[in-house]
């Protein structure tokens, strides 16, 4: 298990990107995603699922994730979440 120790951010608000901020959360709270996206009605669930899966694959169990999506593909979302988590864990997550 990897623990988020401080807030960290990755990504931008340019088109095709997503700005992801991760922050520590209480133990047992799970991965809580707050999403803003122009395609939230159609793809909101999918975006949240990618964020949650990526976080879990990085070994995260509890986190508050704020995501400001600008039309990012899944591969971009995954990359930004990985980077934000790595920064938040001082390089623990790969």
């Amino acid at each position: 298990m990897v623990k988020i120790t401080k807030p960290a951010q990755a990504g931008t608000v340019e088109s095709n990107d997503i700005m992801v901020t991760v922050a520590p959360a209480e133990s047992g709270s799970g991965i809580v995603v707050e999403l803003t996206s122009p395609v939230i009605k159609k793809y909101g669930k999918q975006i949240c699922a990618v964020i949650e899966k990526t976080a879990k694959d990085c070994g995260i169990q509890d986190a508050l994730v704020n995501a400001n999506d600008k039309g990012a593909l899944d591969c971009t979302i995954e990359a930004r979440v990985k980077t934000a988590i790595a920064r938040a864990c001082a390089g623990e997550a790969k």
Partner: peptide, 10 residues
């Protein structure tokens, strides 16, 4: 760090 993750995923 962000760029290498993005490039690898692309």
């Amino acid at each position: 760090d962000a760029a290498r993750q993005l490039v690898a995923n692309a």
